[in-house]
Simulated assay, not measured.
Amino acid sequence: MKPSRFQYHRATDVPHALALLREHAGDTKILAGGQSLVPAMNFRLARPGVLIDINAIEGLAGVTGSSAAGLTIGALTRHAAFHTPVEPGPVGALLARVVTNIAHYPIRQRGTFGGSLSHADPASEWCLTAMTLDAVMVICGPSGERRVPAPAFFRGTFTTAIGEEDLLRAIEIPPYPGDWRGGFYEFSRRKGDFALAMALAFLRLEDGRIAEARLGLGSVSDRPIRLTAGEAMLCGRAPDAALFREVAADAQGRIEPSGDIHASSEYRRDLVGTVIERALARACGLPDHAGEAVR
C-alpha cells in the first residue's frame, strides 16, 4: 500500500519546527528515522496531513557527557551510534549491549533514540532503558523547555507527555560512577523480532554486596515497569542465583502481564522470571544459562 496524501516540510531549526507544529497542530507527525512511522503510513494506520522532517536540524544528534557526570543524548541520535560505547563508563557499556537487540542492522542505521521514546512502543528497548536509569526527557514547546522524568513521560501504549505542539530535544541520563554494572536480557521468537519480555538490571556492588540497584521490566505491560520492590530485595545482599530467583518470583507475583496474539498473559509471566534472572546474572558476571558468554 501507499500512504495517504500529506504535506512535507523540512524544518531548518528547532524554532522552525515548533512554528510548523503550531501552524498545523493536530494533523502532524515528526519524521526522524521513520522506521516505525513510514510503515504505519504505508499501511494507512497513520494518516498525518503534514509531515515535519527534523533531520536537517543541527544539534539534535550526538552524545555528550559521561557516566560520572551524566549523559545527554540528542533525540536524533541514531541507534547505530551505540554499536560501540559512546563513553568509557558503565552507561556507555550498557547502551552498547542493549542496542544489538533492537530490530536489525539496517533499521539501526536510520532509527533514532528519541524517535523510539516518542513512539513509546511497550516492546522498545530504549523505553525500558530510560525508565530503569531514571532518564529525564527534555521537551521543547510553546511555553519553552521542560524536563519530564521517565515515569511521567510514558503514559501508555504509543502515548507520552509530548503534546501536539512539542518536540523532544534530548534525553538526560543521571550520573552513574564507574562501579556500576549492567545486564540486559530479552526473549523474542527470532533475532530482531519484538521482545515478548525483557529485563534490564543496573547494579552497584560494594564489598561483595549489592549497594544500589535499578531493575526494570519491559514488553509485558502498556509501558516499561520499574521493579522497586525487587530493587529493595537486592540491596545489601550478595549476588547469587538464589537471590535472583527470589527477586524474579516476587516480580511474577506482583505484575499482571498483558496477553496478545504473540503470547498469553500466563506465558509472559513465566518469561518474566527468566528475563529477570538472566539480566541480573549478566549484570554480576555470573552464568545465566542462556548459552551466551557473560562478560
Rank of each mutant, 00 (worst) to 15 (best):
L18C: 09
H16A: 08
G70I: 06
V86F: 03
R295K: 06
V86L: 04
M41R: 05
D222H: 07
P174S: 14
I107N: 02
P88K: 08
A123Y: 04
E172S: 04
L71E: 03
D179M: 05
T100E: 13
P142T: 12
S124K: 03
H24T: 04
S66L: 06
R146E: 07
A290K: 00
A120S: 05
R10G: 11
L21A: 05
T157S: 11
A251N: 13
S264T: 09
A130F: 03
Q35G: 08
F187T: 00
L167W: 00
I52C: 08
R278T: 07
E212K: 03
R269D: 05
A69R: 10
V275Q: 03
A281Y: 00
R223K: 11
T112C: 14
A81I: 02
L227S: 12
G62R: 12
T159K: 15
G34S: 14
I261Y: 11
S265M: 09
F154I: 12
S66W: 10
L227F: 08
A293P: 00
E256Q: 15
E23I: 02
G49L: 06
F82V: 05
A249M: 13
P287I: 12
S4H: 06
R254F: 14
I261R: 05
P257H: 12
P224L: 09
E58P: 02
A96I: 03
S66E: 11
A120H: 02
P151N: 07
T12D: 13
L227R: 05
D53I: 14
Q35S: 15
A25Y: 02
L128T: 00
R223Y: 09
T274V: 15
H83N: 15
M137R: 05
I261C: 11
G33V: 09
A293M: 10
E145P: 05
